[in-house]
Amino acid sequence: MTDGATGRARAGAKTVADLLRRRGEQIAQRWADLPFFQAVFTVTRDEAVEACHAVVDSLSAVAESGRVDDLEAPGFQPIREQLIAMTASRARSGLSTAQVDREVGALREAALELLAADAPEEAGEARVQLVTLFATLRVMVVDTMLQENQEIVLRQRQQLLEMATPVIKLWDRLVAVPLIGMLDSARSQVVMENLLEAIVEHKATIVILDITGVSTVDSLVAHHLMKTVASARLMGAECVISGIRPAIAQTIVQLGLDLGPVTTRASLADALEWALERREGRDLPTRGNP
């Protein structure tokens, strides 16, 4: 950029800053009726107007600093939190990132019209600056939403991992762990750790691992199941795997998987029967049954 161009850009940005300051009230009043503000601040209109003012002031400060294309401009700082809250609210209403982006884009019109009315002779460069400023605002909003989405995805993955293994106490020292869905490496690891912790917590001597809800059993899943059974045994608890559907039994045979010494039963009921018989035979000190 030449010195002349830089000078013109700066002057244009200054014009924009002045416009936003002078016409702040009018812009805020018009924005308050646009969906991006109106749909978020539903209690009173004053609330919406106040939020609009905060955005106008912030944009004015950014223009004043001449950094209209800079996402990191300090002028944006005061409204960052507010924008995060507003976009989150719009997203909760079911709007996509693109739809919110369009709503933010609609804010530009009011400012452009007032610029044309107030300063027709300087409009050229100031218009460029104003358009850039609103483009930056849009990028900021979209970026905020993407970050928020990313966090939601991470949170949900984490929740899925944690929800993955409910441990059900069936009887004194007898617990059942129903497995549901896909078992990838990360989930299998969490399942195994939770199950072994449950053995300690419930003083369990027998664990029924029910795989009725597991969608596919491949060699990886079979391997994880066997490792879980072996670890439980080392801790002094016996495992029985139940819920082996006919299709899964066939897959296991066709893949040539050897479940080795693992006890298996077709249904949870069969496994429970086995467990209760096993318990009788274990010559445990007689304790009150629940």
């Binding site: 195994m192 750790e193 072994l196 912790e197 053995i199 300690v200 003083k203 369990a204 001597t205 490792k227 072996a230 670890s231 439980a232 045994r233 080392l234 801790m235 002094g236 608890a237 010494p261």
Partner: peptide, 26 residues
């Protein structure tokens, strides 16, 4: 063999040592 902790059991199995010849109890 009594009282093996979960993390120790997982590690031994991963090492390939599931001690098949030993009895265990909680």
């Amino acid at each position: 063999l009594v009282g093996m902790r979960p993390a120790v059991a997982i590690t031994l199995v991963e090492l390939g040592l599931s001690l098949p010849g030993m009895d265990t109890a909680r």
